[in-house]
Nucleic acid binder design. Structure first.
Length: 532
DNA sequence: GTAGGGTTAG
């Protein structure tokens, strides 16, 4: 008997120590001291259990040491479902759905049964990815394994069905969740809004038992997405506790629909209400300044950011570059660009776009070369900017070279915008036949922008025949386009043709053509001043 | 005692 008691005591001691070991490991990890945690782990082979292994692996993932995590996982003597979930979650946070997928398969082949969490992690990592089509299959697996749809799996599944545009799937999963908290309701609103069903979303909002900040922001954002800015605003005004997300979403709404002045006004209201803007807010407000060419306000926002002590990250600095460039202060834009320590693709696109808009194709090309040299791979937007720059500088051959290089050297597909820029480039240079041929050879039907570029060029060079083709092209797509009338009448005037003879006069009246609003770089006296 | 769902950015 004493031996048995001793064994029991020993076991108790060892269990206690294991708990202590794991506690210590976790506190090391929480303090970022991964090395100490690992040292302790290595020194205690007799005490450590599967929890210790799981903790260390999670720690490696937390500090992005994925290879070490994998190495440890492969060498584990015994794995439980948490070990697998830790791996899946790590891969998910590393934004690697392929590894999540493989790990999930591996787990099943290994004979380890997934639990609710496994599915919640797997499904959420497939959202907005090529793997999203697995969502209905995962749903089937959940059902066949008899796993209950808790709020985590349920919410993730609902998002999955939104992602694959399955309205019925979304509603079905919502009904299948037996005990719902606020999140499935929020996701339901999100889904209804994504599917354009604003009244269903509103009804869900009215029906739900409790609401939180997410609920309000989701509904406001949904209205904005569905172009119902007034509904969004009246809801926003009703919010008793507006948080930074709802402020930003509302301001962003105005920016999206071009009402930059209202966006800036709302930002001022936000500041006077005592709410504190964050990175998202500043970035959005800088967008508003850029859209409004409001460099004075932009300066104030810049000062506001500096005063608030926010660290200037790449995103914020890029917003500043964009704002200064769009407000016509390209030199300051360039200075800020130069101050960005780690420039990413968007930052480079911003400065290249800035030079493009300023009609400085050589500078745009220089920055492009620097970008490539620094190892950043250009994308479609880079090339839109470059071709646009060439068009503004009259560099036809250079533009052609860039356009071709995009496809042959970088494997990118020429999209509508690239063709529009090329048509503009040819058109401005008076090479109307080339422009026409390019449109004919396009792999898709031209849109208003392409036709518009052609029409503009025809106006510039008084080409009646092609101008009418372009105008008709626009008419078939949008029978209410303001710019058509003025360009066509210019061509008729240049050619001395009585527009009534062509029979287009009647057509043009139907277009209810309006004069386009003119923009100015000079700030209006009513511009807003921002004070902190 | 390890793993988890929903809103805003260039």
């Amino acid at each position: 008997m004493p031996a048995l008691r001793a064994f029991a005591v020993c076991r108790q001691i060892s269990t206690l120590s294991t708990i202590n070991l794991n506690k210590t490991i976790n506190s090391f990890i929480a303090n970022g001291n991964l090395k100490e945690a690992r040292k302790l782990f290595d020194q205690s082979p007799h005490l450590r259990n599967v929890v210790s292994w799981n903790s260390i692996i999670a720690g490696y993932f937390r500090y992005r040491c994925i290879q070490q995590a994998e190495y440890l996982f492969d060498g584990m003597p015994h794995r439980d479902v948490v070990s697998w979930n830790t791996m899946l979650s790590g891969y998910r946070n590393a934004n690697n759905p392929e590894k999540v997928y493989n790990c999930f398969l591996h787990m099943n082949r290994h004979g380890d049964k997934p639990n609710e969490l496994t599915f919640a992690v797997a499904i959420s990592s497939f959202l907005h990815k090529d793997f999203k089509h697995l969502v209905p299959q995962l749903h089937g697996l959940v059902l066949s394994l008899g796993i209950s749809l808790n709020v985590f799996v349920g919410s993730a599944l609902m998002r999955g069905y939104i992602d694959v545009d399955d309205y019925k799937g979304l509603a079905r999963v919502f009904d299948e969740i037996l005990v719902k908290d606020v999140t499935p309701w929020n996701v339901l609103i999100l889904g209804y809004m994504k599917f354009g069903c604003t009244s269903e979303a509103q009804r869900a909002f009215d029906m739900m038992p409790t609401r939180n900040a997410f609920t309000w922001s989701t509904l406001i954002n949904g209205y904005i997405e569905n172009k119902k800015l007034n509904e969004a605003r009246s809801l926003f005004d009703k919010m008793s506790e507006k948080d930074v997300v709802s402020w930003t979403a509302m301001i962003r709404g105005y920016v999206q629909y071009g009402d930059f002045m209202e966006a800036l006004k709302l930002f001022k209201v936000m500041l006077s209400s005592g709410a504190r803007p964050n990175h998202f807010t500043f970035s959005t407000v800088l967008d508003a300044c850029a859209g409004n060419s409001a460099v004075l306000v932009g300066n104030q926002v810049h000062a506001c950011i500096l005063k608030s002590g926010f660290p200037l990250d790449v995103v914020l600095l890029t917003s500043l570059v964009d704002m200064y460039a769009k407000c016509g202060v390209i030199d300051i834009a360039f200075c800020i660009f130069e101050s960005i320590p780690e420039r990413n693709l968007v930052a480079w696109n911003s400065i290249i776009g800035g030079y493009a808009r300023h009609g400085l194709p050589e500078r745009a090309m220089q920055e492009f070369e620097r970008m490539v040299k620094s190892g950043i791979r250009p994308d479609e937007i880079t090339f839109i900017n470059l071709v646009y720059a060439c068009g503004h500088g009259g560099l036809v051959e250079e533009g052609e070279r860039i356009f071709n290089s995009m496809v042959t050297d970088y494997g990118l597909k020429a999209e509508m915008e690239h063709y529009a820029c090329m048509v503009d480039l040819y058109g401005k240079a008076g090479l109307l036949e080339k422009a026409e041929k390019l449109i004919e050879g396009m792999p898709f039907k031209p849109d208003v922008v392409v036709w518009g570029a052609l029409l503009g060029a025809c106006g510039l060079h008084s080409c009646l025949e092609l101008g009418e083709i372009a105008a008709n092209g626009i008419y078939t797509l949008e029978n209410d386009h303001p710019a058509v009338y003025s360009v066509l009448s210019k061509i008729y005037g240049d050619k001395g043709v009585d527009s009534d003879i062509t029979g287009l006069e009647k057509l043009m009246k139907n277009w209810r053509a309006r004069k386009q609003k003119a923009g100015s770089w000079i700030e209006s006296p009513s511009s807003i001043s921002i004070t902190v």
